[in-house]
Design a binder for these strands. Structure first.
Length: 888
RNA sequence: GGGCGGCUAGCUCAGCUGGUUAGAGCGCCUGGUUUACACCCAGGAGGUCGGGGGUUCGAGCCCCUCGCCGCCCACCA
């Protein structure tokens, strides 16, 4: 006998262990089985599971469990990402907190050892947590982006792209993170609006005493690196100044006044200082005019030795104050205005202001790689779900900029480039090959120095779809499981990851896409709609939720909410509701057990005869179709919704209730109902398994002892495919009618507010030939449910009978005067009027010779049917209205 | 500045190509010792579907417009 409640705390770990031990998480080896694969978006190896992961991985698990049950060789390939910056920062912070020396003092080798230690200690957290969630990953194939195999793939890709001219080294402005002292990509910069100031400086015109040109700037400290002042060529105010020179204050350098469209007469003073080494626009202006780029910052954003001595070593923000003060003292400060502006911050810490900084970096020619990646989505070879994200993808891809892939960090894939004594670059997969190349180049042995930098983390994760399967080796996995079936991820990494996987996958896998479908899930926020963040302290820990409600409840909740286009607001009440849903199912199973609803060997649902069983069979069919269609479309929420309604509102509310009197009886109907009920429960377990794997597997096991032996664990039970013949229109009509009678009867009773003791009998009249026997057969249960003393059938309709039901059944109650006849009358009149106008329009349409001549036959037929339907409906309602009028 | 999304019951959200009386869960109120389930059952209150215009016999759904809210992208001194 089942307990009253499901106990996730003891059951879930036991079942997970059993699944894992069974080896069923690995794709089956059957060469005839169609492959289906997913690669996990690799979480940060040192991270822990947050609620977004819970959503994302639940959806992946649903897909993979579904496909596994469909009989496919289903592979969900798990792994983790080394997450360069994040991990390095974490370890550096830990070193600092525990009073250790910093990484620079420690040295590269020793520091990396520390990081590997850190990984060994904390690296297992997230994969353990994925197990708690029930993720059926093939752990035997687990990968890490810094594995030997994946590192080999990274080197191969880098070298190949370099030889193809798609990776190059270039000195240009990058986004510089001065605290970490590394370049970051455009995507790792976040622009924040701040209330700043705009200063106006007077720059003296050389050779013209007391004449100045006033420039406006938000960054006074960069003036030390100015190499020109630009004005618009058509700006009358400054026309005569173009070609003249300015004596740059504080430095004494002479710089030209140039004409360039970039200067906007509307903005500032119309004259703009040009600092090519510290501003992306100015850099371009500088290139156009052949200006020098004078870098005045050190890598940690202090003023460097190029500047006048008094500023050297001063932090950029302190230097700003000094320079403004000095300019003011010189009488060269024209004024200052408050100015709202966007300031670039480091996306990770959101605290460090990013500096445009002139350095040598490695770049990927993303523009070239983007072409095929755009085409693949245009052609529909890869689709986005929901579709709207394709626009986002296109917008970015079509305007893509070169991708800066080098990082001045230690934790990551070291760039496979070596430098000779004269600076010649040798890009090879190994040091030996680089040495060989150098030997060929120099004609002798030379000592080479490897590039100190590592690659952007996203460079290695961009290869994830194929590097994890063994590429560059030609492995069986690669041949079988690439391209993957779906990529499930959230929108915030479409650019970082999805786009790069598309580009690199297509380029290295002979034009074959990395995934057929990209499923984008929404972001989860807290109950107040705020983004969860550690600093706000509103992070919902999914592990706590799993402890409290069980993994199934958490899974069902995020699944049911996954359809939202906008952000998901997670509330505990919602989870509680779905935990209750689990309990409801559990108790339905308990009811089945108590009533001997056991599976029967060789039972064929197609052969049941009792109307209730034929009805539930049809409902089961509808549900199976809805769930299957939803999962095929990756509309996970719809699958959850269909199951919720079927289990609770169909199976429990009606089938089990109607079955009660039948189960108590003896004979064939009882036996058939028992078998049918057990069959339906079994079906529910299968359909629900992808979403709620634990409880369903547990019930599968608990129901194994009665009836025929189970062939397998539920995890690999065949997905049900019910035949169309299970639909039964007649049974559906009868039971639906019965439900309608009961439901309407209930609300009538409530309206009458009759105390239970004084409940009058219910008269049912006008039941058709077909309905009558159904109602009669269930008279007792209806009476019980309605709390009426008895049910009587009466051919004659009372004068006050009210047509509650469109099906043509009237409930005749002795107390009909309690019903608002006027409102009912008004409603009918309104509806009749609507039908009349529909009839008029349709008739007109059909009377139109043009329409009849041109419209396809099926459209005309449709209109004819519609006309006939409307006419008969109108007649029916008119009759009802007539009855009402004569009664009232 | 450009783009995307949202605005439906007290709260969180469904409402597919326009079609009877706009739904669910939670919350609230009333009542319940039914052959499983109080994590339950029955019933109830509660909505001018952001505002305004338009198309249509008919609009929560389509068009225009305005208003909030959120997000993404962008080099504005």
């Amino acid at each position: 006998m089942l307990d009253k409640n499901f106990d996730p705390q003891t059951v879930e770990p036991r079942l997970y262990a059993a699944w894992e031990a069974s080896g069923l998480f690995a794709p089956k080896d059957d060469p005839n089985a169609e492959p289906f694969s997913i690669v996990i978006p690799p979480p940060n190896v040192t991270g822990s599971l947050h609620i977004g992961h819970a959503l994302n991985n639940t959806l992946q698990d649903i897909l993979i469990r579904y496909q596994r049950m469909r009989g496919k060789a289903a592979l969900w390939l798990p792994g983790t990402d080394h997450a360069g910056i994040a991990t390095q920062m974490m370890v550096e912070k830990q070193l600092a907190d525990s009073g250790n020396i910093g990484r620079r003092e420690l040295g590269r080798g020793a520091f990396l050892e520390k990081v590997w230690e850190w990984k060994a200690t904390y690296g297992g957290t997230i994969v353990r947590q994925l197990r708690r969630l029930g993720a059926s990953c093939d752990w035997s194939r687990e990968r890490f982006t810094l594995d030997d195999g994946l590192s080999a793939a990274v080197r191969k890709v880098f070298v190949t792209l370099h030889k193809q001219g798609l990776i190059y080294r270039d000195k240009r402005l990058v986004n510089w993170q001065p605290q970490l002292q590394t370049a970051v990509s455009d995507l790792e910069v976040i622009n924040v609006e701040v209330n700043g100031s705009m200063w106006r400086f007077r720059y003296p015109i050389e050779g013209e005493a007391d004449r100045f040109i006033v420039v406006a700037t938000t960054r006074p400290e960069t003036m030390l690196g100015d190499t020109a002042v630009a004005v618009h060529p058509d700006d009358e105010r400054y026309k005569d100044l173009v070609g003249k020179q300015v004596r740059l204050p504080l430095t004494g350098r002479l710089i030209p006044i140039i004409a360039d469209d970039y200067a906007d007469p509307e903005k500032g003073t119309g004259a703009v200082k040009i600092t090519p080494a510290h501003d992306f626009n100015d850099f371009r202006v500088g290139q156009r005019h052949g200006l020098a780029a004078i870098n005045v910052f050190t890598p940690d954003a202090r003023i460097n030795e190029v500047a006048p001595e008094k500023y050297r070593g001063i932090d950029r923000f302190a230097a700003r104050k000094m320079i403004v003060a000095d300019m003011e003292a010189l009488g060269l400060l024209d004024g200052v205005d408050a100015n709202k502006m966007m300031v670039p911050y480091d996306e990770k810490s959101k605290l460090v202001v990013i500096e445009p900084y002139l350095t040598d970096q490695w770049w990927v020619d993303a523009k070239t790689l983007a072409g095929p990646a755009i085409k693949a989505v245009e052609d529909g070879r890869t689709t986005f779900t929901p579709r709207v994200w394709e626009k986002t993808y296109f917008d970015w891809m079509r305007n893509i900029e070169p991708w800066c892939v080098s990082r001045q960090l230690w934790w990551g894939h070291r760039i496979p480039a070596w430098y000779g004594p004269d600076g010649a670059i040798f890009v090879e997969e190994t040091e030996a090959e680089a040495l060989a190349a150098a030997r060929a180049h120099y004609g002798r042995e030379e000592t080479l120095i490897q590039d100190e930098d590592v690659l952007d983390t996203w460079f290695s994760s961009g290869l994830w779809a194929f590097s994890t399967m063994g590429w560059p080796e030609d492995t069986r996995d690669l041949r079988r499981f690439y391209p993957t079936g779906a990529l499930v991820t959230s929108f915030d990494i479409i650019f970082f990851w999805v786009a790069r996987m598309m580009m690199l996958g297509l380029h290295f896998m002979d034009g074959e896409i990395p995934f057929h479908r990209v499923v984008i899930n929404a972001l989860i926020r807290d109950e107040k709609g705020q983004k969860m963040s550690k600093t706000k302290g509103n992070v919902v820990d999914p592990l706590e939720l799993i402890d409290e409600y069980g993994a199934d409840a958490v899974r069902f909740t995020v699944t049911a909410m996954s359809g939202q286009v906008r952000d998901i607001r997670l509330s505990r009440q919602r989870i509680e509701g779905y935990r209750n849903f689990g309990t409801k199912l559990w108790n339905a199973a308990r009811f089945c057990q108590m009533n001997g609803c056991e599976r029967v060997e060789g039972f064929d649902p197609g052969g049941v005869t009792h109307v209730l069983n034929r009805w539930i069979r049809g409902e089961a069919l509808k549900t199976e179709r809805a769930v299957t269609a939803a999962l095929e479309a990756c509309a996970f929420d719809e699958a959850a919704d269909a199951l919720y309604r079927f289990v609770w509102n169909v199976f429990c509310d009606w089938h089990v209730e109607f079955a009660k009197p039948l189960l108590m009886s003896e004979g064939e109907a009882a036996a058939e109902t028992k078998a049918m009920t057990a069959w339906t429960l079994d079906l529910i377990l299968k359909l629900l398994h992808p979403i709620m794997p634990f409880m369903t597997e547990e019930l599968w096991e608990k129901t194994a002892s009665a009836g025929p032996a189970r062939d397998s664990m539920l995890i690999v039970a065949p997905w049900p495919e019910l035949p169309d013949s299970y639909a039964d229109a007649a049974a559906a009509a009868e039971i639906d009618l019965l439900i309608a009678v009961i439901t309407e009867g209930r609300s009538v009773r409530a309206e009458l507010n009759v105390p239970p003791a004084a409940r009058p009998p219910l008269l049912i009249a006008e039941a058709g030939e077909r309905e009558r026997p159904v109602l009669a057969a269930n008279a007792d249960s209806i009476a019980r449910l309605l709390r009426v003393s008895e049910i009587r059938f009466d051919a004659a309709v009372d004068a006050g009978a009210v047509p509650f039901l469109a099906q043509g059944v009237s409930l005749a109650l002795p107390v009909a005067e309690f019903i608002d006849l006027k409102a009912e009358q008004a409603r009918l009149e309104k509806e009749i009027a609507a039908l009349a106008s529909d009839i008029e329009r349709t008739a007109k349409k059909l009377g139109n010779a043009d329409f009849v001549a041109k419209a396809p036959e099926e459209v005309i037929e449709e209109n004819r049917e519609r006309l006939a339907e409307a006419q008969s409906a109108k007649a029916r309602l008119e009759a009802a209205l007539q009855r009402l009028r004569s009664a009232g």
